[in-house]
Amino acid sequence: MKKIEIFRQSAFKENAIIIQILGICSALAVTNLMQNSLVMGLGVTFTLALSSMTASLIRNLIPSRVRMMAQTFIIAFYVILVDLFLKAFLPEVSRQLGPYVGLIITNCIIMGRLEAFAGKNPPLESLVDGIGAGTGYTLILLTISFVRELFGNGTLFGYKILGEWWIGWSIMSLAPSAFFLLALLIWIVESHKSKAGSK
């Protein structure tokens, strides 16, 4: 398969959140602000891409009995590396993100792609697959956070959009609103897919 096709498939056709319903916890937690969503998306993309490549590089050496343990170890390694890097070189971003960076370890998408793709494919293809899945994840996070931040705070990326007259909808800052928005997004995509399939 061509690399562009691998990217397209993991980012859009098999989007982790909308199609595979993975990574929901973080999608609920961080999508109240666009900035958090973007940084979380970039962190996941970086971790996912490099974890996939590393797991693929040593896929023939990993014993099947400890396969998942080794994969988790690799993921944790990259997450801690991201955390250390942010603390040393982008301390303000690290300060704003707080505990979110550590939460990347628990993202099911990473383990899912390592199991489904990186364990069976060469390193470069796995890297592209990781970048694609991370990009798809980031786009969905940004879409949900756009609605939540705009209606919840009247801002986008912290900049006032709706003015002082706007009374923020508190529900949009709470996790349940992400549930509703995510369900709405899945419904729209699935409806579009079934319409396209019936034509």
Binding site: L61, I62, P63, R65, V66, M69, A70, F73, I74, F77, I80, L81, L84, F85, K87, A88, F89
Partner: peptide, 26 residues
Amino acid sequence: PVLFMLILSIILTSILALFFELSKER
């Protein structure tokens, strides 16, 4: 499997320890 995990642990934690040591003053 034990040996594999041991070697993987040593390699990955060594890299992290090195990065931590290099960045801790900063």
